[in-house]
Design a protein around this nucleic acid. Sequence first.
DNA 1: GATTCTGTAG
DNA 2: CTACAGAATC
Lengths: 280, 280
Amino acid sequence: MPMLPPIRARANHLDCNQPMPKIATWNVNSIRTRLDHVCQWLDSTGVDYLCLQETKVTDAEFPRQPFLDRGYHVYCSGQKAYNGVAILSRQPLAGVEAGFAPQLPSHSELDTQKRLIRAQFAPDVILVNVYIPNGGEYDSEKYHYKLHWLKTLYVYLEQLTTQGEVILCGDFNIAPEDKDLFDASDRATKVGATDAERNLLAAIRDLGFHDAFRQFTEAPGHYSWWDYRSGAFRRNHGWRIDHLYVTPGVKARACNCHIDIAPRRLPKPSDHAPVILEIE
Amino acid sequence: MPMLPPIRARANHLDCNQPMPKIATWNVNSIRTRLDHVCQWLDSTGVDYLCLQETKVTDAEFPRQPFLDRGYHVYCSGQKAYNGVAILSRQPLAGVEAGFAPQLPSHSELDTQKRLIRAQFAPDVILVNVYIPNGGEYDSEKYHYKLHWLKTLYVYLEQLTTQGEVILCGDFNIAPEDKDLFDASDRATKVGATDAERNLLAAIRDLGFHDAFRQFTEAPGHYSWWDYRSGAFRRNHGWRIDHLYVTPGVKARACNCHIDIAPRRLPKPSDHAPVILEIE
DNA sequence: GATTCTGTAG
DNA sequence: CTACAGAATC
């Protein structure tokens, strides 16, 4: 694990009188279908940075105007029907790059699926938004694709963490510990909870990341995703797979991190709930 | 044209203190999609018998409960995705038969498409609900199927009208006269308005049927169907293709027949409006 | 234009 | 269970 320098300058948000900026991650399962939910949620929470996954829309078709109207800048990397990530920010962001290729040209084949976007969050803080592959069935092609994607993410972040602080957030499709899913039985073949996935996530974490949610909450039973099927939400049969990982300089400034389950209660919700990190 | 006997007994509805029973026909273009529209419309109009077409659902999947809750009996003959007819009735109905086969076994091949259901409406009145084929393009296979279906319906009704009064209603996909469609130009090849179709409809009518709507309204410009495309409804570019045909005994008791265009104004409407016949 | 299916994905 | 694509139907 490389030594991490202290934050070298005040973050953007501190330059503009926002005492407690909020950074959130939310797999919306189609930004077009969830447009009203997201707009109302932004209006009510005042989140300053929102990292979206599964936007399921090309950049040309991304519904920018509702967010522009609310004072957000929109940075997106999407495709038709599947995947797609975006960052909404009240501040204009520099250093926006989509995919692995700008940093790892040899891994550009992974960029046909739009799963990663990053931006300069502050002069020495980079924000990385990921939608890690679901993984399908255990030992399937999709499962191995997920493992390969995680290994590539490790290399990507290994480089990035040497440059300064990092906020890494998104839908990881991994429950880090048994207490992060409602039923950890048969976990050897339960995709999202297997050793291979957890070990790769642990390797990434060991680059210097801390699970912001676990800074504030140790208890089990807190989830960010519930299957649409068989009343999983009603029974709280969920998984905590949406995360904000932060390097020490950001960790030191973290004030709170929680999952907001209110949007999951709405009619026609995303199957994921947003997770909010507040930093001073 | 066979001589028709007078009505031999009071209709069911007169046995239960409903002074002005209403019989309606409505192509709902998917009963599942239009469930709320139909329920609200039944609640507001108090229609007693509703003949539905294009229910697009198997009998096992038909959403019965909302109608049972409202005091209707449900008789349906449907299939997956296409076609499908049903009768809703406040009274339980006897003599329910689906398709041509019970009466014309030699034409059972037409019953693979669920387009006909009938029931005993009163001791000497039979109610027949049809969804006549659309016909596709002029001179196409579908067009000739429509003509064949109409010829079979003629034979079916030729038998039925000897047994008593008949109410024949449904989506006929035929505008009987030029005034029944907004643009009768090029009608030689305009499916729904060609001579072959009109002649077959006229042959059926000549079995003793009267167009109930035309008992009360002679004017052109009254339509029951408008294409979803190009603002056809807004411009009243429609066709009158949903009909209630009644034999003389019923005609003598008809008090009103009108098209209710209100449901066509709702969000996500069927492309057809219901037609209501009131009888004393 | 609106709905349905099949197929894919999660 | 929800969403999207693409084809077919009307």
